[in-house]
Write a protein that binds this DNA or RNA. Structure first.
Length: 104
DNA sequence: CTCATGACTTTTT
DNA sequence: AAAAAAGCCATGA
């Protein structure tokens, strides 16, 4: 069973459209917290890879970071959605980053 | 409750 | 530039 924190991460992540990415820090901040470390943990325990696009989450440097199914796999998935990588980094990172709306 | 762990991030070597 | 250390937070034992 996902904890409320994890559920919040997944709900938020599901709002990210294909072709865009987000960061662990952004998710945490959107939740009004700074638990980016815990966000990564939540992704790791992602119970629904089919519903939750956990591959659209990269680290602060626009890099893949770790990924339970392998970094190469993650990068391929993102490239299929239109994301471009160069030297292990997302091209025009800030421009493909999804901006979460202010939470009511 | 205390301890260890990790899909993180930033600072310091 | 690359590696190590430190700071942080939720989670499970």
């Amino acid at each position: 069973m996902p904890t409320p924190f994890q559920q919040a991460c997944y709900d938020l992540l599901m709002k990210v459209p294909a072709g865009q990415v987000t960061t662990y820090a952004d998710i945490a901040h959107a939740l009004g917290s700074k638990a980016y470390r815990a966000v990564g943990t939540a992704m790791n325990k992602n119970p629904n890879p089919i519903i939750v696009p956990c591959h659209r989450v990269v680290n602060s440097g626009g890099r893949i970071g770790n990924y339970a199914f392998g970094g190469e796999r993650k990068q391929r998935l993102l490239e299929q959605e239109g994301i471009v990588f160069e030297q292990g980094r997302v091209v025009r990172f800030e421009q493909v980053k999804f901006q979460f709306l202010a939470h009511a």
